[in-house]
Design a protein around this nucleic acid. Structure first.
Lengths: 126, 126
DNA sequence: CCGAATCCCCTTGGATACTG
DNA sequence: CAGTATCCAAGGGGATTCGG
């Protein structure tokens, strides 16, 4: 039974905030989503990139590294020529999946309302 | 019945991505969290700031404006001297609450594992 | 094919000072 | 009190080049 104080996550170095910051990243979310929805066990670098037309090579590399460091994906290198690298979701990522799915569904359901409000706010700057 | 294709959210201007980007922002999440956990109907600017020691005035203002534009919070100005402004969650934010709560709980439960993996990765750069 | 490394722009965001 | 306005530094992130 935790205390329900506002102080929990409000201090600067809060690990929860830190963990969330690296999942909620724009690209990280998308990578997890794509790996999930692909229906495959794993995907290759170039394959991932094809599903993200607007990400740079550099950013995809960095995003994959971050996700690997935090244990959401595995990175398997096959010493072939040409080289092959496979990325797959870990058990941890699987356990997070339902939540991210809910989040995505919520966004999909409410995007029209949100966009509507936003346009209204833009046209009437008070 | 939607098609479960990987293509859904993968195109650059995807509204779902756009909506998520503004919720998943580090500060936006924290503001929603604080407003929720405060137990109050509404909170004032300075009151919010006291719960976020490391946010600048500028960033708090911008975050609140964004959240207001997208309809997650209301902003009520009282024409008094000194001025008073109250921020409160909207029905839309309330509907999002359970998901954000799950996300926070997940992060709280897994932060130690994540941090452990991250430290391990940092000390063994391959 | 899968990156690492470099260069460089330009946005994000802090610090400060000023208003209704 | 609750901002706005301005200036300015740090770093996020694109484009390009090179390597295993």
């Amino acid at each position: 039974m935790k205390r329900s104080t506002v102080q929990d996550a409000t201090f600067p170095a809060c690990p929860v905030r830190n963990v969330l910051a690296r999942i909620c990243d724009k690209w990280a979310l998308l990578v997890l989503y794509i790996l999930d929805r692909s229906g495959k066990e794993s995907m290759r670098f170039t394959e991932l990139r094809q599903h993200m037309p607007d990400i740079s090579q550099r950013m995809l590399t960095m995003t994959l590294r971050t996700l690997e460091e935090d244990g959401y994906i595995t990175r398997t290198v096959f010493s072939e020529i040409p080289p092959r690298v496979e990325y797959a979701l870990t058990v941890r990522a699987e356990s997070l999946k339902p939540i991210l799915t809910s989040l995505l569904e919520w966004a999909a359901e409410h995007m029209e309302e949100v966009m509507h409000d936003r346009r209204k706010a833009m046209s009437q700057p008070e």
